[in-house]
Amino acid sequence: MGVNRQSATPALGQGGNGVRAEAKRKKQSDRLFRYATLMPAVIALVIFTVYPMLNLLQMSVSTITFAHGGAVWQFTPLANLAKLRDDSVFLATLRNTLVFVVVSVAIEMTLGFALAVAVSALGRFKGLIRSVMILPILVPPVAIGSMWKLMYNYNFGIFNQMLAWFGLGPVGWLSDPNLALVSVIIVDIWHWTPFVFLILFAGVEGLPREVIEAARVDGANNWQIVRKIILPLMGPAIAVAFIFRSILAFKVFDQIFLLTSGGPGTATEVVSLLLYRVFFAQNDMGYGALLSLVVIAMIVAFLLGARRMVAGRA
């Protein structure tokens, strides 16, 4: 370290007014630095997140049309609410989103945990598996959507081709309303199980080995060790992976936009897609804002609930 401790000592030795003035100056520069470091982020957040969020409030009670040279706002507080009341698509969207989040996160957590324990227990291929698992997380979700769109293709996709070898199919992976949501969930599981794995694997590797050894000496079998020791010890890591995944799954947009755009019917319409459709396809900024607020309110409720859950565990 390039700091010379001796050179600073004489300054401390001086007494009287010099010290007080020096201390004052120091305090000022301290405060200046404190503000200078935090303010850029605060200003950016206020301008580009707080203000737009407040804007949502105003938009949600307005009908916004576009005339030459800019937006025209009309105050219509009840129109959007009435639309929300009658919006059966929004209900279907919530249902789909809920199914998507619950099913995909549950399967990802289970698979990811099993994989983490298995890799750790085998003790081989750790580096290789980790390399492979990073890939889906880093690849653009749009590319993943387009890859799977090709694989699911009704006429020449790999899945229908393989089925055809056995004289089966073809299956409308993305066109059958009963199957489309499942197909989309499969892509999400492929995409995000690796993320759960990485987090839980770090957790498993950090477990105290002595405890597990002691349990084994006491005659516990593997299944008992997993259930009675590993699972409880991994609680915090599992909770974090669960919360992260739930949030990300709730926000899903890119892949579904490419795979089905919400169809057929409303089979795969999720919250983000509906917002996109209302804001940009129907061009209804006011109603889009109201839907946004409803979604944000639901997320705040979820976050508060999740915090209570984490606090309860701790």
Partner: peptide, 24 residues
Amino acid sequence: LFLGWTMLFNTVPVLTIVGPWYLF
């Protein structure tokens, strides 16, 4: 406040804010 707000912002679907951003 800072962390709570960023947490909230990071949690809501980005499409909720793209609408206002578009106008802004």
